[in-house]
Nucleic acid binder design. Sequence first.
DNA 1: ATTGTTCATAGATGTGGTCTATAGCTCCTG
DNA 2: CAGGAGCTATAGACCACATCTATGAACAAT
Lengths: 292, 292
Amino acid sequence: MNNNYELYKVFYWAAKTGSLTQAAKTLFLTQPSVSHAIKQLEDSIGLTLFYRNSKGVALTQEGAILYSYIEQSHILITLAEEKMAALKTLESGDLRIGGSDSLFKHYLLPYLEDFHLKYPGVKLHLNHGTTPEVISFLKEGRIDLGVVRMPIVDPQLQVRESFLLQDCFVAGAAYAELKDKVLSLDTLLQYPVILFSRNSRARMTITEIFQSYGYTIKPEIEVGSVDLLIEFARRGLGISYVTREFVSKELEEGSLFEVRLDVPLPPSHVGIMTMRNMPLTSAAIRFIELIG
Amino acid sequence: MNNNYELYKVFYWAAKTGSLTQAAKTLFLTQPSVSHAIKQLEDSIGLTLFYRNSKGVALTQEGAILYSYIEQSHILITLAEEKMAALKTLESGDLRIGGSDSLFKHYLLPYLEDFHLKYPGVKLHLNHGTTPEVISFLKEGRIDLGVVRMPIVDPQLQVRESFLLQDCFVAGAAYAELKDKVLSLDTLLQYPVILFSRNSRARMTITEIFQSYGYTIKPEIEVGSVDLLIEFARRGLGISYVTREFVSKELEEGSLFEVRLDVPLPPSHVGIMTMRNMPLTSAAIRFIELIG
DNA sequence: ATTGTTCATAGATGTGGTCTATAGCTCCTG
DNA sequence: CAGGAGCTATAGACCACATCTATGAACAAT
């Protein structure tokens, strides 16, 4: 017995409606097709499943036993189809994003809020980590997409450039004398510099920039979060290297000002990473469109 | 979404084996057929279910959710098919028989034992009742077949003639003087007659026979079971009208003897009744063959 | 490089699911 | 009792579509 499952669908409706004619209407078939399908099923099983009379059909004992199984099976398939539809329309599902805390807080938050309002059925899972950690999350399949600073070079990953971010040095009132100056790199190095402690993209970038000009940047203070970078700068503990967009509020209100340099600091994109050649969930696709 | 269930079978095996090629082998298809089927399913659902690589396929998040449903569904269908096979081969099932106690005890018992030994997986359900009761059991679908005395005339029923039974009058030692005589009906009526009390086929038959000869038979004693008919005759309380085959033991051992009459008592068949135009279960078919 | 996997694609093929038409049956109704 | 209105079964025709063969492309391993 290696039946075409389609026959069970026909059987289900014939049994449920008690009529081959009704089943045919439900399935958009003709009555002879249904009659034929039922006969096929009966032949392959080797048992009579229905008795027929001029009012329709009724299950035999054995047909009723079969129905008790097929009914359950049909319910599951129906649930599955409903679930799939829900996943497709984002009434349901999961979206798992990896990234740094600061990107979540300063850059992704509005998008996350927006997405959650539009698709409240989709559960959001945020996993923070450094860029290499996020990449391994992706490769392990623990997240659907990663949001990190460019550049990323990994043949397994597909990276979409998103928002442009500009890092810069900022200071607070304690260094007000620098407000209208344009500093050279070696001048800057005479001031205490506050850098992000972890192996972040930004930390690597600024180190490389100084090296390319023949200097070595050594922070006076290292801190573990962007919030502390900002806070320390405000309190006059030094000059922090931060992403300008993350301190826009402080720059506006004047609690921080940008320390300009005589060399350009290259901007960097936020990259949306996904696994190359791996299909995305509907939720992930939609979220990336949203950021787009 | 109104999918061909057959696609889910292909999906199940592709997911389970993690390989379209393996799934194809399992399903006795070619790999392109499976590939095509999966694509069809994905298109109709509107979601990607697998990601493909050179090692095979793996479920996406959404595919995994679908699989969790389809797997259960598949298990149920497999169980259903196994159950059907068991029903067909009589490893499982039910056989519901209606009839009189005396027929069960004196006639069907060896067949029931035989059947039960051959097919221990089939549960036997015995429902006793008078002939009209058994007929309604049948029509209500509470039994698969009825075993009663012929003749039965009912257009809804199909009746197979089975064993031939011969009713006769028997007496015990108290009436030893009748042993070698051949009695006329009116002579017999001078003795106390013991008849079955209920509206049995045998009771009706003997009443009609006497009436056809112009006599009325009125029992001295009426009893409610064949066992009592036999017991009362043995104890000399009268002459019992019983089925000869049911007292064969007593006739052999001499505790009862047949009272011969000068008129023939017509034999009657045991009839196996089933509903006309209603398919029988495998168990019922097999049992009827066995009696055949 | 070469070989052996994998899945995808294109196009040919033919099977079998579906159709139309019709018959047979039962029940109901005027 | 004839006629109609349900129902299912059967026969035969047909064509859609599931499946096939052949091939390509990508990747892994040797």
